[in-house]
């Protein structure tokens, strides 16, 4: 057994394994984000001013790249997860590589669109 490092092999592996590694990595990032996000929302219990102060701290042009990256992580995890679910049900198994490319492309398209929407919202 090689332990957790077996999830993140890079050398000698195929695109399928890299997709798996990224799925794990994005999953860990989303878990950390979820905890931070829920802690952030809980701040409303300390009063509206505290919550508004937090909002003004993060919803601004400087943090836009981070939000954009977060959406990339979300879309990758969602679309790649969909691919894994389909393949695990035996659907499109033979086309698993094509499916990987198509869903990764969809993730990128959704990411660019969401970044554009956020940019319009933040920049006005």
């Amino acid at each position: 057994m090689v332990g957790v490092k077996g999830w993140f092999r890079i050398r000698g592996v195929s695109l399928q394994s890299l997709a798996f590694s990224l799925q794990r990595l994005t999953g860990i990032i989303l878990l950390i984000y979820l905890v931070a996000h829920l802690s952030y929302l809980t701040s409303i219990r300390l009063g509206e001013e505290v919550y508004t102060a937090f909002i003004s701290l993060t919803v601004r042009p400087e943090t836009l790249p981070l939000d954009s990256l977060l959406f990339l992580v979300i879309f990758y995890h969602a679309f790649n997860g969909l691919r894994v679910v389909l393949n695990e049900f035996g659907i499109l198994y033979e086309y698993r590589r094509a499916l990987l490319y198509i869903l990764a492309a969809l993730a990128v398209i959704c990411w660019l669109w969401s970044t554009y929407v956020m940019y319009i919202y933040v920049m006005g």
Binding site: V13, S14, S17, F20, V84, N87, E88, R96
Partner: peptide, 11 residues
């Protein structure tokens, strides 16, 4: 336990 990395089929 399988999480469909599908590396088994590749190698």
């Amino acid at each position: 336990r399988c999480h469909f990395a599908a590396e088994c089929s590749e190698v």
